[in-house]
């Protein structure tokens, strides 16, 4: 799925400004942003509920603007709260959505019910369901037609810890085994950290950062391109080690590598690719520095999030 320079203006107010994202197949992609940053607006545009002012969204080769029915066929989604027909049973709700896509058998409905753990209550009316159960029903309707792109807006909202874990494991399995691309928005940063391969952070309608969440500089999402990670070297003389590295290592632009020296802890911190870590170690050892430990440090997503959004509650 691709978002190409997506812009949404309402009146003269720009809600989404030139947003471009590219999601490879089988990736679990997180979509983060403070309240009012345009997450839900973006999702509404992705599923065709809102029109794009400019740009285009392409899902599996079909544009949501010009070829809606074909594009949306591949999408399963929850947009905000999973509102269902309260006066119908859970089963009839699923049947309702199953009828709208050709080729969904009763077996598939039963399979999805089992998967979301709703077996015991599926014949009850939805008005008797708890928020967590409605959320499960929401996930069930999104999965019915085996979509290749799953868009979930705050899917863990209202789920108990066991439910969250189940959902997380299931989403990861979908991505790996069936190649489903999963697009999740959430405020729960720790949750995103456990679930996602990459996250995009938006603020005031603008994309401000995309980060890979697989630590150690190895890109685990199969894109083949390494992303540097933070590495901490624990050494006996951090200042000397830093000087040594800065003399030897140049970044691609030819400037000395950026280092963070933590004398008190006796360590230095720097960004490195996985392959380079051994080289760096060799360099230090040859320079007579005693290396006690090498660790890759991943900042918590919460730290990163606050860092890039400046911790403001921007509306």
């Amino acid at each position: 799925m691709q978002l190409k320079q997506v812009t949404k203006r309402i009146g003269n107010k720009t809600i989404i400004d030139n947003l471009t994202l590219d999601l490879p197949q089988g990736e679990v992609f997180g979509f983060l942003g403070p309240n009012g940053s345009g997450k839900t607006t973006t999702i509404r545009m992705m599923v065709g509920l809102m029109r794009l002012t400019e740009g285009d969204i392409v899902i599996g080769g079909s544009s949501i603007r010009t070829d809606f029915e074909k594009a949306i066929r591949q999408v399963g989604a929850i947009v905000e709260n999973p509102e269902m027909y309260k006066y119908l049973s859970g089963y009839r709700n699923l049947m309702h959505y199953a009828r709208m896509v050709p080729g969904i058998s009763r077996n598939r409905i039963d399979e999805v019910i089992r998967l979301t753990g709703l077996d015991k209550r599926i014949e009850d009316k939805v008005k008797t369901y708890s928020l967590g159960m409605r959320q499960r029903l929401g996930v069930a309707q999104a999965l019915l037609h085996k979509p290749s792109l799953l868009i979930l807006d705050e899917p863990t909202n209202g789920l108990d810890p066991a439910g969250i874990r189940e959902l997380r494991d299931y989403l990861r399995r979908l991505a790996v085994e069936e190649g489903t691309t999963v697009f999740v928005s959430s405020h729960l940063l720790s949750e995103m950290e456990l679930m996602c391969d990459r996250v995009a952070i938006i603020q005031a309608g603008k994309l401000i950062d995309i980060r890979s969440l697989r630590p150690g500089g190895v890109d685990s999402n199969g894109m083949g391109e390494g992303v540097p990670g933070q590495v901490l070297f624990e050494v006996d003389r951090p200042d000397e080690a830093a000087r040594l590295l800065q003399e030897e290592i140049r970044t691609a632009d030819g400037v000395p590598a950026k280092l963070d020296i933590r004398s008190a802890e006796g360590s230095i911190l720097l960004d490195a690719m996985r392959e380079d870590i051994a080289e760096l170690n060799g360099l230090l050892v040859r320079g007579g520095i005693r290396v006690y430990s090498i660790r890759s440090v991943s900042k918590s997503l919460e730290d990163q999030f606050l860092e890039v959004t400046g911790g403001e509650s921007v509306v």
Binding site: V47, L49, R73, V79, E80, M84, Y85, M100, V101, Q141
Partner: peptide
């Protein structure tokens, strides 16, 4: 009013 329109319109139907 129920909010179900969102799930209704994201099906492969114009």
């Amino acid at each position: 009013t129920q909010g179900t329109i969102k799930l209704l319109l994201i099906r492969p139907w114009s």
